[in-house]
Computed example of a mutant assay.
Amino acid sequence: MNKRIAITSGEPSGIGPELMYHLSKLEFEDIQFVVLGDRKLIEKRASLYGSDFTISEYDKNRFEPQSIGNICIMDIPLNVESVAGHMDSKNAQYVIKLLKTASDGCISKEFKGIVTGPISKAVITEVIPNFTGHTEYFQNLTNTKKVVMMLGCDKFNVALATTHLPIKDISKTITKELLFEIVTILNHDLKTKFGIKKPHIISSGLNPHAGEDGHLGTEELDTIIPAFNELREKGIDIEGPLPADTMFQDKYIERADAFLTMYHDQGLPVLKYAGFDSGFNTTLGLPYIRTSVDHGTALDLAGKGIADAGSLICAINLAANMARRSIQE
């Protein structure tokens, strides 16, 4: 089975290129990681952390597991020279090329998955006005109807029914059809990408106290509970809806393969408190593995060699574990 994973180095003026140094501190007997980006840029920025690494040129006909001291790079040249901390829209197409090359490589089976470094939506939208982010870009490239954002740390995973929506729009967005889509994708990918035979999903309600039998809102009674009952009839092991303020207890964490929350700030504050430096992001529903760092470009830290690589290492380890556990369909 192909266990080669692409790592996109991200916005060239941010911390992404220099964080690639930390790949040289990792060893995998069965996984090859290939960094996509400008070789000279990555070599220069990675050197901020030390010179104890070598760069090998990527050859798709030669499988080389990740070894300590090495960074394997597919050289994709910048459009213009990049200055740390100062974004330039002339490199927006370069960033897009990194993403498209990685995605195309997954579709052709050259890669098993992608780990994405941080990008700036602002600089890309100067050139591509309708660009909204990694997730939507990969979704459109692969003609995927629906994707699910799941974030996690070393303690638990949280999937989101809705993502970046104003609070006032959430209730009308959570429909029976949406919950069917979200939970079905979550259950499917926990099986096929995480190798969990019988996933156990625990979900929050929307309202305080999960609606308290309709006294604090009726969305649970009208939509969420009926949807979950039907999903259980289809063989999906979902528990809830539970009150969000008491859901993240050890007794639930021990049993949950993933939590589902109804909106972005219902679950993520808890997750980031529990493991901010070990956080990762994965996109479920795509035809390939995609994990990501859980932070931005950090322009203020770029070029200084002080950015923390914890999230990148977590995203790399997650991608490797998913590649090992994933089931070919």
Results as ranks from 00 to 15, higher is better:
Thr144Tyr: 12
Arg62Asn: 14
Leu299Thr: 00
Lys145His: 11
Ser326Pro: 04
Met20Lys: 03
Ala244Asp: 02
Leu99Met: 14
Tyr137Thr: 07
Leu141Cys: 13
Val35Cys: 04
His134Pro: 06
Cys106Ile: 10
Lys191Leu: 10
Ala159Ile: 08
Lys121Cys: 13
Pro77Lys: 13
Ala122Val: 15
Ile238Gln: 01
Asp38Cys: 15
Gln139Val: 12
Ser278His: 13
Glu233Gln: 13
Ala258Cys: 15
Cys314Asp: 06
Pro199Phe: 01
Pro208Gln: 05
Ile224Ser: 00
Ala307Pro: 03
Val80Gly: 06
Gly133Met: 09
Glu64Val: 15
Asp308Gln: 14
Phe53Met: 06
Asp250Ala: 12
Pro17Arg: 04
Lys100Phe: 08
Lys100Gly: 03
Ala227His: 02
Ile76Pro: 02
Phe156Leu: 10
Glu329Ser: 14
Ser203Ile: 01
Glu81Ala: 11
Glu219Ser: 06
Val293Phe: 07
Lys100Trp: 10
Tyr58Asn: 08
Thr144Phe: 10
Arg325Ile: 04
Glu81Pro: 07
Gly305Met: 08
Met1Gln: 13
Asp38Trp: 07
Pro77Cys: 11
Met150Thr: 09
Leu179Thr: 01
Asp245Ser: 09
Asn187His: 14
Ala122Trp: 15
Gly285Thr: 09
Ser24Arg: 03
Glu29Tyr: 14
Thr135Pro: 07
Asn140Ala: 15
Gly211Glu: 01
His22Val: 07
Leu216Val: 04
Leu260Asp: 00
Asn157Cys: 11
His295Tyr: 09
Glu43Val: 08
Gly37Asp: 03
Lys172Val: 09
Tyr49Ile: 03
Leu36Ile: 12
Gln66Ala: 04
Asp277Asn: 14
Gly37Ala: 05
Leu26Met: 13
Glu43Trp: 07
Asn140Trp: 12
Asp308Trp: 09
Glu126Asn: 15
Ala315Glu: 00
Lys145Trp: 08
Thr132Lys: 15
His86Gly: 07
Ile196Gln: 01
Met1Phe: 12
Leu165Ala: 13
Gly240Asp: 00
Thr116Ile: 05
Met1Lys: 11
Tyr273Phe: 15
Leu318Trp: 03
Met262Val: 11
Arg4Ile: 06
Ala102Met: 06
Lys155Gly: 10
Asp213Gln: 14
Asp277Glu: 15
Lys193Ser: 14
Thr125Glu: 15
Leu231Val: 04
Asp38Thr: 07
Tyr94Glu: 05
Asn143His: 14
Gln32Cys: 04
Glu11Met: 07
Gly285Ala: 12
Ala122His: 15
Thr163Asn: 14
Thr246Ala: 03
Ala323Gln: 00
